[in-house]
Every structure is written in structure tokens, then in C-alpha cells.
Design a binder for these strands. Structure first.
Lengths: 215, 215
DNA sequence: TTTCTTAATCTTGTATACAAATTTATACTC
DNA sequence: GAGTATAAATTTGTATACAAGATTAAGAAA
């Protein structure tokens, strides 16, 4: 298995917790590889900002509340722009893929039972799919390059775990609004709706962080 | 010397041209190192998007005109946002550093004689300094993280080489406008001025690329 | 002469070895 | 018993070795 993907995955789903030192020998054993490819994967993760260097070796980065706020601000700007561009450049095929993603989104929300890990993973995947199609439709590969590094922050990734049914349906409704604006070629409307969508996500995560701090 | 910085520098100032294969043994000899640290530097550059993988090894990335356009669009959004945030959060110390950068900028432009490499390098550095202070004042470390990867594109970096005296003075004037808006705490004005500034940079680069294509 | 096949060479990718540095553990002193 | 110093043991960083795959070159056939 690819070392980079494995370690990244383990960080994202919390198997490797923030602050944990990532020993090379340990990872090499876990993946049945020598230290060389492990070190290269670590260098890649360091460039991504997912691990931070120590005096020697690296540890899993700890994202503060302030980091989360800044990252969501970034996402708001970039995805807002992507939505407005998508409303200009979207093709028929783009629209079909957005619609398809939202239909699946509706299904998995419908079938979803609270705190079922598998269905949450499906929700995360299909939500991401919708966002990715918009970014693709925006016709700017560089936006995609940067957003792919922004969204991957562990806490953002896991935020769906503490959505309730009502909030999930709310989220689907905003998706529909965004899609409608893109279909109608209304860039400003698409941007504003996307802004609102991501601000809701931000508030949701920040509130959760506040709650666990007070307990 | 650090392998990553060396190779990155060589790509930026064109010593390693787009498409050129970066042989590990070659780089190892050039830097008096073994292949191991070279490979790690290459992995880092790959994460940055400055080199692209081949079937085996990597080559220097070639940025197309379309890439340049997309990258400048990204810069416009991110630095425009940074300028508006700077207009809100700038401290006294931030303002002083912006002023200092612009004073030096004025001096080096004044003393500058066309196509003197050293003075051009100074101009590049002090222009970058002004932009960096604004990004710092915006109070968003993640914006800085992403912009640092966006601006480093070789062609963008070298765009100053084909500015004439009038255009340099023009550029200084816009810097002053941006600074004034930030000083007066006018976020929207600062953003718009920054947008204009970067669009001018973009048009300048794209026109240059067009010119060399037609010759 | 040109093209296809095969062999030789070169380069990468992975593993391992070794030295330097940091961390941990133990012992000694106050 | 606590703190410091010294020594032992991990662990990283760099170098090198080896094997697999890719590229180039050479030779044979059309």
C-alpha cells in the first residue's frame, strides 16, 4: 500500500492523533516497507502541512480553533469563486454530475441512521463529490490543487460525524440552491449560496469544538 | 546547501528549464550529496507542483498560458482578501513595515537602470516584501501558506525582467494606493486596488508571453 | 536504408548499513 | 530523596548497495 495515502488516512480519521510522533521504524513495520519510502511520504505530508518537524523526525500537526477559522475562511473564498465560475462555464455534463451527486446525497441521508459509521462515510464521500464537481466545472485546476489541501484537515473531514438528521437535510437544501444558481447561470447567486453553505459548516465545527472544550 | 532550496531556485531562475529531466545522480553530484536527500527534496517539489512525475523520475513542470491565467486569478482572489483583512487588522507595526518597503521600492526604482540583473533582483525582493507584509497583516497563516506556493511559479517570478521604468513607477503608485486604503481602514478599497494591481501584473505577463510567441 | 527485435546500459526505487545526535536511563553527589 | 551528570540506547539523517524496470544501442531482417 502507498505509504503517503496510508499515513494521511490514519491522520484524517484520528488513528494517529495530533502531537503523536511518527517514528519511521514504526511506520515501516506497519506497512512492511523500508524506511526510505516512509521518509518520502513524510516529506510529502510535511509539504502538505499535515505533519510538523521536530528537532528530529516529525509529529502529527495539531490544528487550533484559530487554524480552523482561517481554513474555513479560505475555503469560503475559494469555493465561492469556484461556484461563481462554475455558473459561467458549467457544461451539460457538469450539471448532470452535480444532479447525480445530489440525488445520491438525498438517498444516503434518507437511509442514514444516527452514528452509523459506514453511512457517515458515504455522506462524507458524496458531499465531497458534489463540491468536487463544482470545482471541476469552474475550470481552474489550480483552485482544485489548493482546495484539495485545504479541505483535508482532519477536524473538517470528521465534522459530519456530529450532524443530526435535520442539519443533513438543511445541507442538502443548500446544495440544491447552489445547483439551481449554477444551472441558471447566476454567478453571484451561486457564490453567495456557497458562502452561506461553508459558513454554516464552519459554525457547526466551531460550536462543536466549543462544546467539547466545556465538558 | 539545502537541496530543496537549491533545486527550487534553479527552476525559478530558469537554470533548469521546463521539461528538463531532473536526474538524481546529476543533482547529487552538483550538490555533493547522496541520492537520499535529493529524492526527499524532489518529493517536496512534487508536492509543490514545481516538478511532475514521469514513468520514472521527474521533470521540471511547464506552465502553460492557461496555467498562468488561472494562477493569477487565484492570486487576485487570495491577495485581494488579504488586503481587505489587512485593512481591518493591521497594526501600527504592520503599517510601518509596509511604508518602509515602499520607500525602499521607490529608491531601487529610482536607481534602477534597464536590464541590470542585480537591481531587478532587488526590485523583485522588495515588491515581494510589500506583498508579504500585507499577507502577514491579514492575520491568516493559511493564506500565506497557499500564496507562497502560488507566487513561486517561475514565469511570475521573472515577470519583472521585462518591466520598463514607467511600468515600475506605475506599480509603485498602486502600492501607495493600497497602503493608503489599509492605513485608512477601508477593506473594500484595499481589495479593489489589490485586484487591479494583480490584474495589471497578469496582463503584463500574458502580453509578454504573446509577444515571444509571435517572434 | 529502414525497421523491428533483442541485448546491454543506465536510472530509478527499495533495502540496508553506518555515523551523528537526541533522548532515556542509571549512577553519583548534595 | 532530588537533581545533575554521564553513559547507554534509540532514532534520525546520509550514504551505499542491489534489483527491477526503462531507455538506448546494436544487430539482423526486410
Amino acid at each position: 500500500m502507498d505509504a503517503y495515502e496510508y499515513i494521511k488516512g490514519a491522520i484524517i480519521d484520528g488513528k494517529f492523533e495530533p502531537g503523536m510522533r511518527l517514528g519511521e521504524e514504526f511506520l515501516a513495520k506497519e506497512l512492511n516497507l523500508s524506511r526510505t519510502p516512509i521518509r518520502e511520504a513524510i516529506k510529502h505530508l510535511e509539504a502538505d502541512g499535515l505533519v510538523v518537524p521536530l528537532k528530529r523526525g516529525v509529529s502529527v500537526r495539531n490544528f487550533t480553533t484559530e487554524d480552523i477559522r482561517q481554513i474555513y475562511d479560505l475555503r469560503t473564498i475559494l469555493e465561492g469563486y469556484a461556484a461563481s465560475q462554475a455558473a459561467i462555464y458549467r457544461t451539460k455534463a457538469d450539471l448532470e454530475q452535480m444532479e447525480a451527486a445530489n440525488i445520491v446525497y438525498e438517498q444516503v441521508i434518507e437511509e442514514h441512521v444516527q452514528s452509523d459509521m459506514d453511512s457517515i462515510k458515504e455522506i462524507v464521500a458524496v458531499n465531497q463529490r458534489f463540491h468536487e464537481v463544482i470545482i471541476h466545472a469552474a475550470n481552474n485546476a489550480h483552485i482544485h490543487f489548493h482546495l484539495s489541501k485545504v479541505v483535508v484537515v482532519p477536524i473538517v473531514y470528521r465534522s459530519f460525524y456530529w450532524y443530526n438528521d435535520y442539519q443533513l437535510k438543511q445541507s442538502l437544501e443548500v446544495h440544491k440552491t447552489i445547483l439551481q444558481a449554477i444551472r441558471n447561470k447566476e454567478p453571484e447567486r451561486a457564490k453567495i449560496a456557497m458562502h452561506e453553505h461553508i459558513y454554516q459548516g464552519r459554525d457547526h465545527v466551531l460550536k462543536h469544538l466549543e462544546d467539547i472544550k466545556n465538558s
